[in-house]
């Protein structure tokens, strides 16, 4: 008997089908004529029978008590706070790679400064002009809006400006706390199978 699965002999799926009495008639016919496959089937059945009869082991008598001493009955699992990811080799390698890339980029820029400047010279002025025009147009557009004067008078007083600033910070903090609650896992590394 060989350890491989010749094309015309019983496959692994055929073996399963044989044990569950669902072997196709074609393979049943093959089994009647193939001595190798018959031996394979017999030995496989013996393996499964032995596995099925494999004994079960019992832990020590105090096993359950020791567990119960460390279990919080009826209490919900503590919600873990978000923590900084562990320093695994892969993460360290990724960080070193990024840092090396950045260092290489800075070094190249320092060495080839003239070349870099020649690239940037032409494009910088054009970009700057375009940006200034866009900015001016944007401001003009905003100032022309009917609600602009209302907002301007609202933030005109330092007291009102302070109050609006405080309200904005409070809203931002509330949003952050809500987001943290939403993204924090409920049970750490313990999750249902398939969940």
């Amino acid at each position: 008997m060989t350890n491989t699965w010749p094309k015309n002999h019983l496959t692994a799926d055929d073996l399963d089908a044989f044990h569950s009495e669902a072997l196709s008639s074609e393979m049943r016919l093959h089994l009647e004529t193939c001595e190798d496959c018959r031996r394979l089937v017999v030995l496989d059945r013996q393996v499964l029978e032995m596995l099925g009869r494999a004994p079960s082991y019992a832990p020590s008598a105090e096993f359950a008590d020791r567990i119960m001493a460390r279990v919080q009955v009826g209490k919900p699992a503590p919600v873990p706070v978000l923590s900084f990811p562990r320093w695994t080799r892969r993460r360290i390698a990724a960080m070193v790679g990024v840092a090396a890339g950045m260092a290489a980029s800075v070094a190249w820029s320092a060495v080839n400064r003239q070349l870099l400047e020649s690239w940037l010279d032409g494009s910088t002025a054009a970009l700057w002009n375009t940006g200034a025009v866009l900015w001016q147009n944007g401001l003009t557009y905003l100032a022309a809006q009917p609600w602009f004067e209302g907002i301007r008078s609202l933030v005109g007083s330092p007291v009102r400006l302070g109050a609006i600033g405080a309200l904005t910070i409070a809203l931002y903090a509330t949003g952050l706390l809500t987001l943290r609650r939403l993204v924090t896992p409920s049970a750490g590394s313990v999750s249902n199978a398939g969940a």
Binding site: I67, R70, V71, Q72, K75, P76, A77, S186, A187, G188, S189, V190, S191, N192, A195
Partner: peptide
């Protein structure tokens, strides 16, 4: 078992 039972509230 400690892991499972301490997280039993989260079992689906």
């Amino acid at each position: 078992f400690i892991k499972v039972l301490n997280a039993v509230q989260t079992y689906r």
